[in-house]
């Protein structure tokens, strides 16, 4: 029936439009939900969302030990060659050679914060930090070494 279809078309259209207007109108009358952050003013009480990703950091515990085995899984996972891992060979007391991390080079200027390296890491050595104030005056400062000087791999991490 043509007329019936026509009227139901109009009814459905009006109804769906009103649904949309209800959503935006609801946002308009509830200004408490505004998510804009007044950045320089609220620097002291920043309220960043849980999943905000600022840069890749390596976790170190109080003994200056990390969990990176130098397996280069993160380097392989990175889509734009942000990470470069330089390994060395530790010699254990028994005289066995063991591959270990020498330098974890991280090019912040290339990083897109895609989180793939963190997901690829088998030992949970790296994570995403929420620090976002990265501006510096020299590009070379953006190339970072993530493992702290003198740090070594935690016991028992393979």
């Amino acid at each position: 029936m043509f007329i019936k279809e026509y009227i139901s078309d109009v009814y459905k259209a009006v109804k769906s439009l009103l649904t949309g207007m209800k959503t935006t109108g609801g946002y308009f009358i509830r200004p408490g939900e505004i998510i804009t952050q007044q950045y320089p003013e609220n620097r002291d009480q920043l309220n960043l969302p849980e999943r905000f990703r600022g840069e890749v950091v390596m976790l170190h515990d109080e003994n200056n030990e990390h969990a990176c085995t130098g397996c280069t899984a993160c380097e392989l996972a990175c889509p734009n060659a942000t990470i470069k891992i330089i390994t060395k060979f530790d010699v254990s007391p028994e005289g066995k050679k063991k591959k270990a991390l020498d330098t974890f080079v991280y090019h912040l200027e290339l990083c897109t914060m895609c989180n793939l390296c963190v997901e690829a890491c088998p030992t949970g050595a790296i994570t995403m930090a929420q620090n976002f104030e990265h501006s510096v005056f020299d590009r070379s400062k953006l190339t970072k070494k993530l493992n702290q000087p003198g740090s070594k791999i935690r016991e028992g991490v393979e």
Binding site: T24, G25, Y27, F28, P31, I34, I35, T36, Q38
Partner: peptide
């Protein structure tokens, strides 16, 4: 301002 509030923003401030 109206646009901003409907999109959960603040608008010019």
């Amino acid at each position: 301002k109206v646009a901003a509030h409907m999109q959960i923003r603040l608008g010019p401030n």
